[in-house]
Design a protein around this nucleic acid. Sequence first.
DNA 1: ACGTTTTGCTAACACGATTCAGTAACGCGC
DNA 2: GCGCGTTACTGAATCGTGTTAGCAAAACGT
Lengths: 341, 341
Amino acid sequence: MPPQSVTMADVAKAAGVSRTTVSFVLNGRMESSIPESTRERINQAARELGYRPNAAARTLASKRSSWFGLVTEIATSPFATDVIKGAQQAAWKDGNFLLVAPSEDDPGMEQLAVEKLLEQQVGGLIIATTWHREITVPENAKSVPCVLVNCFDAEREFPSIVPDEIGGGYAAAEILAEAGHTNIGHITLKTGIPAQIGRQTGMKQALLDHGIEPDDSKIVPGDGTADSGYHGTQTLLSQSDPPTAIFCGNDRIAMGAYDAIKERGLRVGEDISIVGFDDQEILAPHMRPKLTTIALPFEELGMAGVALLNQMVEGSPIENRQITIGCPPRIRSSVAMHGRR
Amino acid sequence: MPPQSVTMADVAKAAGVSRTTVSFVLNGRMESSIPESTRERINQAARELGYRPNAAARTLASKRSSWFGLVTEIATSPFATDVIKGAQQAAWKDGNFLLVAPSEDDPGMEQLAVEKLLEQQVGGLIIATTWHREITVPENAKSVPCVLVNCFDAEREFPSIVPDEIGGGYAAAEILAEAGHTNIGHITLKTGIPAQIGRQTGMKQALLDHGIEPDDSKIVPGDGTADSGYHGTQTLLSQSDPPTAIFCGNDRIAMGAYDAIKERGLRVGEDISIVGFDDQEILAPHMRPKLTTIALPFEELGMAGVALLNQMVEGSPIENRQITIGCPPRIRSSVAMHGRR
DNA sequence: ACGTTTTGCTAACACGATTCAGTAACGCGC
DNA sequence: GCGCGTTACTGAATCGTGTTAGCAAAACGT
């Protein structure tokens, strides 16, 4: 029964060797030739005493800590969870920890968060946002390797990892085109943000590639809310030649679209096909019919962030400073075949 | 421009005092008489050199770390975010950090997570779950103060903080009763879990208190999915004397209920009133009509966890080992007045 | 002028590891 | 039985801070 805390010295005494030897054995250093018998003796002593390494002491002595800092706006969105989760898992695999600090989208707060993380001797920093956008990185973040996730700085000074909005928009439109739709509407996100621009660009390209002429009158601006989806859908369905399918800028817009369609006595996934974006876990799979949508790979973003950070910390040259992660489609039941059937 | 890292010794040299004095001044120790002039000189030197304290060294020397460990199933649910957020903020206020470790609902994993957190010298542990239930706490968690959030151990050995399911169920039914409904249905969660039992108990009590005789035939078992809400609602509305209001065990059930009601050509919030539970951020406020529901106070749970942990770490006696946090109603538009209008 | 208290500091050890520079013992070839 | 290389370790310094014990000088009381 270990009383309070067992140190390496205790293990050394128990095994009848020096602290140095214990350190080598427990850290698996093979370069110093220590016979199997001794290793075994030390390991057993450590086990019996219930030895638990002291991370603070290790960090101090080795000048390398076992944790990364993640600063993010936890407040605003469930998306943050997924980034944390992905980063967490990736870090955990290498025995590293994540220190999560809140930025709350306030520049002063953000700088303080970074400062506090640096005090904790983090080996690297991830700065993540909940929606894809440009940010200015606090000055002090430059003290350690730093990766941006779901955002980027104007000067492209920091490596960044973002979702492939264009590819996602392309995939969404392609799903509809391949289902035989040629008259496809689009309700956008708030105009000007990277997600809106990318998704719309991808959509246009997909239409062109499938021999469909993009028609700007089928694109109605929204703002990402269910309300805007509802009204946008009303607008589209009131046209003289209403679309048979709508690509909604995100899942909440799709939610509003469902309501508008149902209200008109039409059926989602039969009369009108819908594709969303984001794949919100507690939304998309539970809508009726279940929403076909494009997933935002937040977990992968987080994992990629940590992976990149690992590279940087180890000093490996990084070949690609602007990584995009694909947005995979999630096929469910809100898209119907159209035309020749 | 600080080159690599500025230590207390550097500050001491710059200010022309000893390291001890610097330590006293920067930690705000007033018991050692140090004149304002010297304090000022030291503070300025620290500022100019860009001194950043080394948390690892401090932890090692003082044997008290500035972080708590939080182990939770990040994987499964967006709820985890809110607990993290609340705990985070509460910890941050006292200059403490949260080390988040994943348990993934696997006992082995959980024990490893705790072990790793202990190595990091956490001053206390929070074990949180994403749904209210009984757990068995890993043995090694007893090494430091430990609080359970949204769960409890069978022996009630650990202080725990849980939502007031009964009060929430009461509030939900009361909303409907006060709107004039007397024929109220209920679609439950998976039977046997604390949330189901508590919410249903609270509902019955509220009905009794409002002079309504609880009727078991109006209670249909569900499993927490939108599908079960859909089918449960079909069942209720097919009765000879269908309810005019339904209390849904959670928001997803309410989502299914909406669909069933709309499919029958009825209107939610006019013909049939609905109350949900959970107040899922990206769901309830975006449904049409917006869902009146009872919020699960995850953020408060997290905050209360850290607060309790602080008390325990400081050795204050804790008066209440079983804390319940209220579930506040969120009134929106899915409940209509009924009867005398 | 002399003891006593207060002021303003500092020396030195501790914390629990990592790590570099060695060294004693042993085997081996000749 | 001497030199040399290998094996199996160890001593001691170091990391940056907290903390206790104590000391020199100044201030104070009488």
